[in-house]
Nucleic acid binder design. Structure first.
Lengths: 182, 182
DNA sequence: TGTTTCATGTAAGACGTTACATGATTGG
DNA sequence: CCAATCATGTAACGTCTTACATGAAACA
């Protein structure tokens, strides 16, 4: 249950309402830990009940501003310093790859090329995002944001390379006698 | 709901019981799509009810052997050929990175170094796995298995490189006046 | 005979997604 | 006044994890 820690983390620098936090999720945290409206409001209530957050102000439309409590800060620290969990990865794409030989050679190639282009597109989007940010201003993205962004760039680059490599391998094994390449 | 398709995919080549499929999950599919006993048995019943699988034999201890039906094969094809889903990634580790500045410089470095070593360890394990497999024998791992294995190798390599890069960045920004490096 | 392996099933609870529902306030 | 935005909440459903529960068959 890391949504809870995402909320705690976001509330270190600021005080915010559920609505504010949702926007923060959609902008800064979207690629790392997406969350829906339902989830955020529910978890905020639970966190406040547990004493990790507290309501420090009421606004116009029933708006509630939350702030981190000492207990909450302690919990955040504990989570950050704790042994990082070996997360079991689950990849829809790799699962398909695993059963790729059910498809025809043409379909296999199409699949891998599609993956390569998807990764390339994602990579380009991240690159554009990075270049569009003000690094002089103190926006919401600190040095940590840069680290995760760089991870995304490296990941998508690797994915594209892998897909192109796999496509070439599949293509050459489908017609082993014709070993033409550029 | 891709567990269903994992089961269908595994039943293309063989006929198997839930117990067999569990073992297959733990060996060949563990890194791609882990599944628990509860899940497998439940899903098998649902798949049989839906007509995608059928029981083709009973064994000793209430053992039921399942086989793919034509409908099941069709569904597998449909899934494989379908537009691959843009899966939203959720990374516990990256979430922590995002809030890394809550920690002390020493703790940050420790975290990143730990990540680098974890990735390196995983990489080594995968490499050993690859080298230990008989490629001459027709084990359970076909060409597709090789593709996913290679993905894992590239991923873990990239993760280690990233973590080392990040560690260096963090270290140098903590003591900007002392720009010593090898 | 007793332990290991084979074999299946159910139940409770956490987490996530989608959809539904409601209403106040701001701005044009 | 009307639309967009702000703001919160609930309900239903599906998936995954953990734990509990049961028993037959193989083997030593």
């Amino acid at each position: 249950m890391s949504l809870r820690h995402a909320l705690l983390g976001l509330l270190v620098d600021r005080t915010a309402s559920g609505y504010d936090l949702l926007k923060l999720f959609d902008t800064s945290l979207a690629h790392v830990w997406p969350a829906t409206q339902s989830q955020v409001y529910g978890e905020l209530t639970r966190l406040a009940d547990a004493g990790l957050l507290e309501v420090v102000g009421q606004g116009p439309r029933g708006r509630k501003d939350y702030a981190l409590t000492d207990t909450g800060m302690t919990e955040l620290h504990r989570w950050l310093a704790d042994p990082p969990p070996e997360q079991p990865r689950r990849s829809d794409t790799l699962l398909r790859v695993f059963f790729l030989d059910v498809l025809t050679p043409q379909q296999r190639l199409a699949f891998l090329n599609h993956q390569a282009e998807r990764a390339a597109g994602h990579h380009a989007a991240l690159r554009q995002l990075r270049d569009s940010l003000d690094w002089t201003e103190e926006g919401m993205l600190t040095a940590n944001g840069l680290l995760t962004l760089e991870y995304g760039l490296r990941l998508t680059a690797m994915q594209e390379e892998w897909a192109r490599w796999a496509a070439q391998l599949v293509a050459s094994s489908d017609s082993p006698s014709q070993a033409r390449q550029s």
